[in-house]
Nucleic acid binder design. Structure first.
Lengths: 167, 167
DNA sequence: TCGAATTTTCAATAAAAAATGAAAATTTGA
DNA sequence: TCAAATTTTCATTTTTTATTGAAAATTCGA
């Protein structure tokens, strides 16, 4: 396979993958494009490579910066802004997980907490309801600490080694 | 808060949460409704409670069954079919993760593997491209074994205890 | 086997999400 | 400071996704 073709497919499949997880296709594609670019790109570069409008590029770049996935880069003697993606996939993954937790999971957990204040906890069905709500809260705490462990395993060789034993 | 109101909010927020993760809102709502229902429900029950059409209920129930999240239940002396959700949130979570991995992650990894067969691996930019592709593959293997550990920690108290030490 | 009850399908419609492009705002070199 | 270059905004349009509802298919008790 030719490199250009492979890059094209990478960008497309990353876009499709993002879509399945509730991420705007273009946002994912721009991120993919910058991930495999050897140098930072301008908005015009991105418009051209993905054949999308300036407005679309601009809005999605703003979002990607908001997620902390890409950065503005100033190039000496150039008027245009350049954009660069952090290439460390590990960092990218933990960033996305943390960000989605903050934006989507935490607000839901907050709401769930309010649902636990029932007027009458002995009403028929209340027990089952509170059980499910409580279990979801517990599960998300589990997932949280799992993420911590994952991060620590990456930073600390000993923890990583112990985890490997259990695989 | 009244139980009915709390249930309503639970169903709505579960639906909204699902949407953010690329899950059809109605599918998530039906799942939520069945999770907190004290008894299995019929299609008519669901239509009424969510005020949605029969076709919509039917299609999303089919999907939920396909995901393994709900089951048909036969009630003695009743002509109608009833539906029941597995209430074990832990099982629900691991099921969803495994299913999404199978449906969405694995196909992408398969594609990525094909992108590694470049005609010319010394072409400018090939190294960086292969690095990113390789890193994504590595990361997903990591995530896989993490899921295994998570499942084992639940089944095996010793492993769970060791993990707690690292928190 | 018949036929009423129930479920399923899917073309048509509606709703939601994403993209466009031109105008407005901002930036920056001269 | 000015004006060309660049970026940003957002009302409008397009595309995608989800929903409806009625017809067709299926099921099952009598």
């Amino acid at each position: 396979m030719k490199l250009d073709e492979a890059k094209q497919q990478f960008v497309n499949s990353w876009g499709a993958f993002g879509t399945q997880w509730g991420i705007n296709r273009t946002m994912a594609q721009i991120h993919a494009l910058l991930l495999i670019s050897t140098a930072p790109l301008t908005q015009d570069d991105i418009m051209e490579q993905l054949t999308i409008s300036r407005g679309n590029v601009n809005m999605n770049i703003r979002d990607l910066i908001g997620w902390g996935l890409i950065d503005r880069v100033i190039v000496q003697g150039e008027r245009k802004e350049y954009f660069n993606a952090d290439k460390d996939i590990w960092k990218v993954a933990t960033l996305i997980i943390k960000e989605r937790k903050k934006r989507e999971l935490d607000p839901m957990l907050k709401l769930l907490a309010t649902l636990e204040n029932l007027d009458d906890k002995k009403e028929k069905g209340a027990k089952e309801f509170l059980q499910v709500v409580g279990d979801i809260k517990k599960l998300s705490k589990h997932a949280d600490s799992l993420l911590d462990i994952m991060i620590k395993a990456e930073e600390n060789k000993f923890i990583g080694a112990v985890l490997k034993i259990f695989k």
